[in-house]
Simulated scan of single mutants.
Amino acid sequence: MRHFLIVVILYSLSFPALAQEKRIYVSRDANGVVIFSDSPSPGAEEITLTVRPNLMEATEVRPIEKKAPAPEAFKVEITQPLDQATVRDNTGSVYIEGRIQPRFQRGFRVRLVFDGLAYGEPQNTTVFVLRDIDRGAHTIQLELIDQNGKLIAISPVTTFYLHRASVISPN
């Protein structure tokens, strides 16, 4: 409060000085260049300016409205199989498990993307079973979809390698 009072007193004392008229003289030199000065010179014209302080009316101060916190972003990840893991199953079955954070909400669905294509229908669990999959490298992702069909979050791509024994190459 003390600092505010000092600023108000200093401003009120300087206000009359700001409102005084200032004298400015304008003339041209031999090359025609315009010269402005605060002291008169032969042939100079006087220009009178009234300097007023630059004031702005106070505006209404409103408290900042607190908004509800934004809903947390969902994080989807595949926990099984691990990225770059080798799955050994002669029947070609692969069990996929995922995790969603924060907590899975009612009405949400999870879709499995297998080798770039949607696999089956979206479901309300993060556990999937792939059957009769060919040996080799495969990619999987999980997509979280809300009750309106909007994609909410997607997991990073996980690559796994399915190893199935064969008659030609048992290893």
Rank of each mutant, 00 (worst) to 15 (best):
residue 58 A to V: 10
residue 61 V to Y: 15
residue 116 G to L: 03
residue 143 E to P: 00
residue 51 V to C: 10
residue 134 D to K: 11
residue 52 R to F: 13
residue 57 E to N: 13
residue 90 N to D: 12
residue 100 I to A: 11
residue 57 E to F: 10
residue 161 Y to M: 06
residue 110 V to R: 04
residue 69 P to I: 03
residue 159 T to S: 14
residue 120 G to S: 05
residue 44 A to E: 07
residue 132 D to R: 15
residue 69 P to D: 06
residue 103 R to M: 15
residue 99 R to V: 01
residue 149 G to I: 11
residue 32 G to E: 03
residue 154 I to M: 10
residue 138 H to D: 11
residue 148 N to S: 09
residue 144 L to Q: 09
residue 27 S to G: 01
residue 85 A to S: 15
residue 73 A to Y: 10
residue 86 T to K: 02
residue 115 D to H: 15
residue 112 L to R: 02
residue 121 E to W: 01
residue 112 L to N: 09
residue 124 N to T: 13
residue 138 H to I: 02
residue 106 R to V: 13
residue 98 G to F: 00
residue 78 I to H: 05
residue 101 Q to H: 00
residue 125 T to V: 13
residue 61 V to K: 00
residue 138 H to F: 05
residue 89 D to S: 07
residue 122 P to R: 07
residue 71 P to L: 00
residue 42 P to F: 06
residue 112 L to C: 00
residue 47 I to Q: 11
residue 132 D to K: 14
residue 54 N to R: 10
residue 109 R to W: 04
residue 147 Q to H: 15
residue 32 G to L: 14
residue 150 K to P: 08
residue 155 S to M: 05
residue 90 N to F: 02
residue 124 N to P: 07
residue 145 I to S: 09
residue 27 S to I: 07
residue 86 T to V: 09
residue 119 Y to E: 09
residue 149 G to N: 11
residue 127 V to T: 03
residue 96 I to R: 05
residue 91 T to N: 08
residue 142 L to W: 00
residue 136 G to N: 05
residue 87 V to Q: 03
residue 128 F to S: 06
residue 113 V to P: 00
residue 100 I to H: 15
residue 55 L to V: 14
residue 138 H to C: 08
residue 44 A to Y: 02
residue 43 G to Q: 04
residue 88 R to M: 08
residue 110 V to N: 05
residue 148 N to D: 15
